[in-house]
Design a protein around this nucleic acid. Structure first.
Lengths: 193, 193, 193, 193
DNA sequence: AAGTAATCGAGACGGTACGTCCAGTCTTACA
DNA sequence: TGTAAGACTGGACGTACCGTCTCGATTACTT
């Protein structure tokens, strides 16, 4: 929001950036359990000591590295909710399949179970990601495309939940057909007669 | 497939049982990241060496400890699918809230992302858990309570997915109202006219 | 020996004085191994950088701090060498027991073994300290109180050496009786008949 | 005294011996301040962890390394005290000049000032070294070669003290002439008429 | 009195060593 | 033979200082 009163020492900026980049790289390659301060120092050229100067411990670095990853997907606002939602879920399905974000989500989820800070991160992550969809649904309610007696936040969960479930719990593919059935069964009946 | 030529040495049985019990205990208390061979040895009285004799490494022990936990929930078979499903989801919601199984699921999910063996475990876990529900839905299709042109496996995911999503991803409560809306929106329209 | 071309910047003077004072303080409290640039900076309020500006490294600071400590003991010049020497050795014994100088001497000795500069410091230290005694002995030779065929420098060592030995090597007390026997055995037979 | 109830695990014996040997080697080369667990591990091939298993910290290892060094010099027992003492002091002078023991003595002395354990080591060191000389002097007293009203322990200090003083404090050479004057001035007058 | 230069504090940086914890392998001695 | 006990190598942890290095912000001197 507001610009920092004074700008950060460029050396700090540089060190942090280097370390973070290396951390993300390692994360991508070896997963969260492979993220080691030692390795980050080696790969980034930043001294171990310096890394500790900026992140109190391994977890904080992991946290930051993951935190610098989330990127919400936009949702189109045409006159057809179902089409908009379907398009969004297709993008989500693709992201779940390929993105680094999806690859690290299990780690975040697991860490959330034991660490309050991570839980907050995870929450903000998912709510930021969910909110575009939810806003679209709210708009649909306003537009009379959906009934008013409905919890749109939960509805959003009903739309994306099955995709997450198949991706992470049942380890089944998230195909276009899957998206289609989810959207059809969930939204079709809600459309005004 | 053939029965073991000789019954297992009772000492081995004992050592394994002790170690596993201690492992589960620790898992419950400190989470998966706190599961240390060292600690298991200490708490169980079984020597570190012995543990290594029965489990090649920490992960295998973790695997076994978690594997000895899964317990599928039964689904009633009355004449009312919706009621049966609703009851099942309520139990699931409760399990998600309180059970050790739910507490360790994130760990399994995370481990699955990096370890094929864990992925298999997770898959079998979830399919075993999902199958009673799926069988109930299949029965409903046969009974004409649900249309035939539907992927019941995916339908099951649509029913449980939102619950998992709220529990682990968005960290929102999984209340009775949640279950109700999910069941209503998903199954109501599928009921025969 | 020539006066500095220009007076030193008062800020430098102040910084040096503060740092040195703090260094001596720490030396007294924690011994030489506890003397840390970091601590000096903290205790003195002088920045670490500034300290490094005036002393190339930790050893130089240690060197200066110790160097600002030496203080030769005077020797009386009455007509009785033995009495004068005895009085001097008594003072020395007291200094060995209590003074900061004595507390730090082992450090100087040790450092001397590895560092030429320290060795020079130690040498000048001890020779400055020894010289009053030696001058008194020389005077005694001139006065005919001692034979002329004697190495007075070594004789001085024979007088003070046993005291140092007991203080630092054998860790035995240096009492008045000790001083008495040393003086008696060493100087008595040298007196003219 | 008593043989250990059970003999030590040969692996321990080996590890300790290797580490200690490397430590002494390093001590000889770099002095006590250069003795680093890291270096010992590297040079000895013994793992750092193992070293810590046997010595709680760097100081203990230093202690042991130095402690395994002391070796008292014998004193001859002919009918001539002065000659015996002179020979002994000559050997001592040589040891002071060349031996590892002498090279490390300043470190021991310094450490003794701050560490009670080291002080004890130093004391036992020097008393063991001094005792042969003292015994010789005692024998001389019994034999009537020396007066009975004399503290032989202090007399020993009077003989060796000047040598230590010149070696470590005044950094002057300890020549044969030095030994001669010390013996002559100290013992000559004590001889029976 | 203003302008220049020296000195200062604050603290980031790459390093070395510390002492700790745990992993996974191994050896020895006991039932 | 299997187990308990525990030593071993090895990797990473997080901490404390080291000595070097920018940076503005004073503070002293100079014209």
């Amino acid at each position: 929001m507001s610009a920092p009163a004074r700008r950060e020492d460029p050396r700090i900026t540089r060190s942090k950036a280097c370390a973070l980049a290396a951390a993300i790289e390692i994360l991508r390659a070896d997963g969260a359990s492979g993220l080691t301060i030692e390795k980050v120092a080696l790969h980034s050229g930043v001294a171990r000591t310096t890394i500790y100067r900026h992140w109190p411990d391994r977890n904080e670095l992991l946290f930051d590295a993951i935190g610098s990853l989330g990127q919400a997907l936009a949702v189109a606002h045409t006159s057809d909710v179902q089409a908009d939602v379907r398009a969004h879920l297709r993008e989500l399905a693709a992201a779940l399949k390929r993105s680094t974000w999806a690859a690290l989500l299990p780690t975040v989820i697991d860490a959330s179970a034991h660490d309050a800070e991570f839980a907050a991160l995870a929450r903000s992550f998912s709510s930021a990601r969910r909110s575009p969809l939810r806003r679209r649904l709210d708009a649909a309610v306003v537009a009379g495309e959906l009934p008013t007696d409905i919890d749109t936040d939960l509805l959003a969960a009903q739309l994306v939940g099955p995709l997450f479930y198949r991706r992470f719990v049942s380890h089944q593919p998230v195909t276009g057909a899957v998206v289609d059935q989810v959207v059809r069964i969930t939204l079709d009946p809600l459309a005004p007669a």
